[in-house]
Amino acid sequence: MTIAFAVLLFGGLGIRAYKDLSTPESWSYWKDLYVSPSMSAEVIDNLDPDKSGRGRKALAITGKIGAASATWFREQLDQAKLQPGDIVLMSSPGGNLSQSMIMGEVIRARGLSTAVGTADADGRIKPGYCASACVTAYAGGKVRIGIEGSRLGVHRFTSSRQGEDPVASTQRTMGFVLSYMTKMGVSSQVVEAMSGTEKIRWLTGSEASGMNLVTDPVQRS
């Protein structure tokens, strides 16, 4: 009876798991969360991006933003135990827009700052880049630190749901991005820059500051 019960139990779980993974979207989520996360993270205890001598704890994340990156990111933050004012250091080519916006909301809700780059074993920042959907995650920072040599890249977000008019769908997507950026205190000029190109446009430091995308420019040494 015990063996029969176990077979039925695990058989039922297996069938349910199969159903849960029967669509490409579900499999992408499970794979990104449990099998091979598209992003990696490292805790840095003493990061000093503005060279003020006041080091702060940071979570450095790198990689493409995947289908489950927002859930993964919350778990990494919980483990790192970052406090308000601590830093999320990111370097990413972009990826899933909805996941990146959720990541930005989480960053803002926890009162964290953001910066673009990578860090070595001693906590020294190296320039990096944050493009496409990564920019919306970066925008979630309560303070958005500029790093000399790092780059922010934007482009138009498109949506191609089956049966939908591509122009109307793209306009709606950009409307969501505009609403999000406005909520985060970023000028609508950044969405204008996004809308102007399908390819990545790398913003200059003065452009990023003028759009209030970067709120705390690091002075050149």
Rank of each mutant, 00 (worst) to 15 (best):
I3T: 06
D78A: 14
E105N: 05
E25H: 11
Q171G: 06
S92N: 08
S187V: 03
H155L: 09
S179W: 12
K19N: 08
S187C: 08
D165R: 10
F157A: 09
Q79T: 12
M194I: 03
V116L: 14
L203Q: 09
Q189S: 12
L97V: 06
K57P: 10
R156N: 09
S169A: 15
N46M: 07
I61R: 05
A67W: 09
V218S: 14
P93M: 11
R156S: 02
G14Q: 00
Q79W: 00
K142R: 13
G94H: 02
S150R: 04
Q83V: 09
K183S: 14
I107Q: 00
G85R: 03
G111D: 10
R151D: 13
F176T: 02
H155Y: 07
Y180E: 04
V191F: 07
Q99V: 03
L97G: 03
G85I: 08
S28W: 02
T71A: 14
P217R: 12
T173G: 03
H155S: 09
A109N: 06
Y34F: 15
Y34V: 11
V177F: 08
D120H: 10
L152R: 12
G149I: 07
G117H: 08
G175I: 03
M184E: 04
I65Q: 02
K19Y: 06
P93T: 11
Q189V: 00
I125Y: 11
D78G: 08
A121H: 08
M39E: 06
P93Y: 11
F10C: 10
Q79C: 01
I61S: 01
M181I: 03
A58E: 08
W30G: 00
G163Q: 04
S22K: 15
G141E: 07
E25S: 14
I61T: 06
T197F: 01
S69K: 09
T118R: 10
Q189G: 12
S100T: 01
G140V: 03
S160A: 12
D216M: 09
L13V: 05
W202V: 13
N212S: 15
Y180L: 10
M181R: 04
G66D: 01
V177G: 01
R172T: 06
M1P: 05
A133T: 00
E75R: 15
R144N: 10
R56I: 14
A119C: 11
L77H: 02
T71M: 13
M174W: 11
C134T: 01
R220P: 06
T173R: 15
I145P: 04
T170Y: 15
D165H: 07
T215C: 13
V186F: 09
L33R: 11
T215S: 15
I200D: 14
S206I: 02
M194Q: 08
G163W: 03
A68D: 02
D45I: 00
Q99A: 12
K142Y: 05
S209L: 08
Q79K: 15
R161D: 10
G163Y: 05
V190I: 10
L178H: 13
Q79S: 11
T2F: 13
A137M: 15
A70L: 05
F5R: 14
M174C: 10
H155E: 03
S113D: 14
I87T: 00
A168E: 15
C130V: 06
